[in-house]
Simulated assay, not measured.
Amino acid sequence: MHITRRRPDTRQGPAENFTGTVWLDELAAPPAPSRLRLFNVHFAPGAHTAWHRHPHGQVLHVLEGEGLVQRRGGAVEAIRAGDTVWIEPDEWHWHGAAPRTFMTHLAVVEAAEDGTTTEWHAHVDDYPA
């Protein structure tokens, strides 16, 4: 057993992967052989990810606020505190806060064998206003 008492500092989501102000807290990244990664992600109103996908999928659990999520070719879906979203492996998607509210979610991913967790793509062109 290992108890982590000090996490890495909160960091801002990079502009090449996010639109608007997003803050990331890494909560867990256990050593190998584990490939689990757990983040607490805080989105300002209207902030959201670019299109991206994960080799082993992703679980999002909304802790507070309201947000939006969309898979490529699908409808934009509203998500709220208490909702959990399963995103399939290699499914292109984006997610973030609704236009007028903050949103915080836990994001759980499993790294690929080469250590990558995310493949990033273009910014979202038609984010709902």
Rank of each mutant, 00 (worst) to 15 (best):
W120A: 00
T116P: 00
L63F: 09
A97T: 02
L106F: 08
V108N: 04
T116H: 15
L36V: 14
W94R: 04
V124M: 06
R71L: 09
V22A: 08
W86I: 00
E26H: 01
W92A: 05
H42Q: 15
A47D: 11
N17R: 15
A112D: 15
M103Q: 12
V108T: 15
M1D: 09
D25S: 06
H48F: 06
W23C: 09
H48A: 05
G57D: 03
E88Q: 11
A28G: 03
D125M: 13
I79E: 01
R7W: 06
T84E: 00
E113N: 02
H42F: 13
L60Q: 06
M103G: 09
A81T: 07
L24W: 01
W51H: 11
F39T: 08
E91H: 05
E119C: 01
M103W: 05
A81F: 02
V59L: 12
H123V: 02
V76R: 13
F39V: 03
R71E: 15
G82Y: 06
A32W: 03
D90V: 03
H56D: 11
W86L: 07
G73S: 03
P30A: 10
R100S: 15
L38H: 06
L68F: 15
G67D: 03
R11C: 01
R37E: 13
Q70N: 05
